[in-house]
Design a protein around this nucleic acid. Sequence first.
DNA 1: AGAGTTTGTACATTGGTCGAACAAAGTAAT
DNA 2: ATTACTTTGTTCGACCAATGTACAAACTCT
Lengths: 384, 384
Amino acid sequence: MVKEINTSIVMDTIIRHHSISRARISELTGLNKGTVSSLVLELINQQLVFETGIGASSGGRKPVMLEFNGDTGYVVGVDLGVNYILTILTNMQGLIISEHHEDITGLKSSEIIPLLVRTVGVVSLQAPPSPYGITGIGIGVPGMVDSDGTVLFAPNLGWTHVDLRAEVQVYYPQIPIFVDNEANMGAIGEKQYGAGKEVKNLIYISVGIGIGAGIILNNEVFRGTAGYSGETGHMTIDANGKLCRCGNLGCWELYASEQALSTMGKTIQPDSKIDTLESFIASAEAGQVSIIEAFEKIGHYLGIGIANIMNIFNPDLIIIGNRLTLAERWVSRTLRETVEQRALPIQRQSATVQFSDLSSHSTALGASFMAVSAFLQKSTSRYN
Amino acid sequence: MVKEINTSIVMDTIIRHHSISRARISELTGLNKGTVSSLVLELINQQLVFETGIGASSGGRKPVMLEFNGDTGYVVGVDLGVNYILTILTNMQGLIISEHHEDITGLKSSEIIPLLVRTVGVVSLQAPPSPYGITGIGIGVPGMVDSDGTVLFAPNLGWTHVDLRAEVQVYYPQIPIFVDNEANMGAIGEKQYGAGKEVKNLIYISVGIGIGAGIILNNEVFRGTAGYSGETGHMTIDANGKLCRCGNLGCWELYASEQALSTMGKTIQPDSKIDTLESFIASAEAGQVSIIEAFEKIGHYLGIGIANIMNIFNPDLIIIGNRLTLAERWVSRTLRETVEQRALPIQRQSATVQFSDLSSHSTALGASFMAVSAFLQKSTSRYN
DNA sequence: AGAGTTTGTACATTGGTCGAACAAAGTAAT
DNA sequence: ATTACTTTGTTCGACCAATGTACAAACTCT
């Protein structure tokens, strides 16, 4: 039991430092040299770690460097979007080995899951031979997910109470499957592989058709009591504002998402069929001032909500992800100006706001990391 | 190291169950009977626990019941308000032994600390003889406090960068002192002794002149990266609303605090000197409709912010504390109606909203508990 | 070449939990 | 009352895993 914890600590240290000697692990963790030696031996036997060679001396015997064996197994990460499925195969270090993109516009919900399973199959076949094979599948979904992997409500997919984990599990009975909200997965992705590596408290704001947030506090995802935290899109920012379909007035996402953009677009060009984000971007790139101004307005309103989040959480880092990052160029300035004006000075000092590092891969990478994390936990526990 | 953890577990179990046998502790914790026996023996020797007698048999030998010795020592909790100091002496179980209230309206900040120290002395003298004596002092302050116990900014006291802990420590060099934000202390108080006992995620909303929040997530206070979380009073709820002195527009506390009430009062009766909360309450009790409507409006706006907090955190419980609880009668209805209308249905299902259980003592009790908690941690650790 | 460093392993020691046995104290049925 | 069965709490040896010490190996520096 103590051993499990120590094994985890050693494993984490090796992963974090990429290449490290036993002696240095002992220093960093405070564990005895002998203890480290024996734990490392077990990890090597499990093929989770290997010796890569001799390092540079610091005045004495040269150290034997250890590395995490990123290719000890592979995992699948799925970003199930409103109109696409992005499926990736990564090794244990988040290196993308294979990637598959599928458009699902117009598909019925009953067709989506089989297709999703098929894409998992496609990328899995690209996995090189490895000691552990495919060790897990993670899936990020645009909706509320409970702790059993059931999608309770995904408005933009039209799903209610779909037991996604169970349905996928049928096809892969042996492989652990993890389903979570797309914003949580995005937050995990950024924390692990993106801008949030060095950070304890980060909020990932997923701006697509609506707005959701993945909340990482003290290095762990905070899901709330029932798993429904992060519904920031329905935070009121205008007490007497527009009516949202949720019943509330002045919800943030009515002012600062693709849906807001679409509403603005209708005012600008009532009979145009410019409606997708891509088409707005094209117009902006072509220099259409009214569209650029629309983006700037979106940036402004994003800033208002972000200032709120700063004031409430005092995070290290706020990352803006999902589709609206495509418009960073036009929303960024007003966003930053608004945060500058509106957040408390003391909050601005400690927090950074930035757009996603991993661009469109945050969620898929986060999903794959959930599987990696579970695998490592199992492997370093006694009963595996 | 393992022993410390197990000792803590045993101690917690005893405290939580008030009266419990060794056998039952072993069952509940999963620890071996022999292990529990030996750990309990040490706790008894430390006078933290004692045997209270024989319990009821469940078909075999009668158990020896164990109880936490609440009177093994005493702690002081201070609620430093904007115009009062409330100082209490409690035993280790939060039982108030002595209480002292002091009005500080009009006092200069240089006079406050000596007075605070004096009140601590007054209540301390009421402590009965005990094995450990006064084991700690906790102080809740209406402002931002860093991890060193320095009050960085307390606008309503007019304090900037006051090293409160150090200044009090001078008078009590041997006693550990804990300084934290008043809302954090309130949240701790409610969690430990009030409505939040059974709950993992609770947000305590302190509504006084401004609004602050104490955030408890997964049973622990969440303070944010630099310790400035919970500044919910400056959450924008009206994007184009009134200008706040913080520089932002439409801050929550402009619409839902004593300061909001005071603003409304000026509109209702421009030349009246009815300005304090107490005078508004007196008017409402006298049946003055315009004042009652003002309270109802406050309730409405409180509801808007609370719905936001529900949507963001998905907590088990939201507790409204501090001065405005005095007006519960008039704000409660509109508050609940607004939350009902505005929070997502799924959030309302899992969360409860209520006014403070401990009325005006939440903060002082929370402050005293911080001291208790630190004492127990020290006592159950090896080096004490 | 010799002295001093650093790395990693070997082994006895130690702290602390666990399991099993057992004594003490009770209940329930005959 | 006697007997059988439960439950509680302690004792004691076994065992697991971390620690400290010693030491060999490998290296640097003078």
